[in-house]
């Protein structure tokens, strides 16, 4: 692997504390689905990787976690090199092998049921999918219910993977199997664990 400046630079300045604070933001977001959690990070990944998505991967991925990249990210040598240098995560050949999956283009996310969904015995052996979005506001409003949400929680990220509501209901129907979703705008995240239900039709 040719080690270039672009590959080496732009990681966490202080990995111990940066990882901790990014993890806490993600944990809060996962525990309170739909809430917007700011990701303050000094990570400066090569485009088209955004800072929040990159920070989440730096904080959580390593040589034990196969990482899947969508076509837009996979075609960038700089992105692949940067992720390999800073995390050591091997690339997953298919979405179903991925512990983490990273998508820069929401429109091109493969069918959600194609990712690792765990087994009935080990539902935790499932992909955490990180989808980069332009913004966590301004999109069509979705109303969430489920554990972590006292009554309801409205979100409006944009854009989302195609037929998202239908796909997400399909994931809900597999419970406890499923996947967990992190929507990453450049400076903040929203999490949808598999328990989050899009509840518009129930209201």
């Amino acid at each position: 692997m040719a080690v270039t400046g672009q590959v080496v630079e732009g990681g966490f300045g202080d990995p111990v504390f940066a990882s901790q604070s990014v993890f806490r933001a993600v944990m809060d977001a996962m525990a309170r689905p739909g809430t917007v959690q700011a990701i303050a990070t000094d990570a400066m990944p090569p485009a088209p990787l955004n800072a929040a998505a990159a920070a989440v991967v730096l904080a959580l991925a390593d040589s034990d976690t196969p990482l899947w990249l969508d076509a837009e990210l996979a075609k960038s040598e700089a992105v692949r090199g940067w992720l390999a240098f800073h995390t050591g995560a091997p690339l997953a050949g298919t979405p179903s092998d991925a512990v983490f999956a990273l998508a820069a283009n929401p429109a091109a996310v493969p069918p959600l049921t194609g990712f690792a969904l765990g087994t009935q015995e080990y539902p935790d052996r499932s992909t955490t999918l990180i989808v980069q979005v332009e913004s966590l506001t301004g999109g069509p409003v979705l109303t969430l219910t489920g554990p972590g949400i006292e009554t309801t929680q409205a979100i409006a990220p944009r854009p989302l993977p195609g037929h998202f509501e239908v796909q997400w209901r399909e994931i809900n129907g597999l419970y406890p199997r499923g996947l967990d979703l992190i929507l990453a705008a450049p400076d903040a995240v929203i999490c949808l664990p598999r328990t989050a239900r899009i509840g518009n039709e129930e209201l």
């Binding site: 944990m27 512990v99 935790d124 967990d180």
Partner: peptide, 27 residues
């Protein structure tokens, strides 16, 4: 020893487990 005793690789492993635990309450 590292901050909070555990090495970073161990913390990442535990953090991943915590996130899955939160996503599948009670499992």
């Amino acid at each position: 020893y590292n901050f909070a005793y555990l090495d970073e690789q161990t913390k990442r492993m535990i953090r991943r487990a915590i996130l899955k635990g939160i996503a599948i309450p009670g499992y």
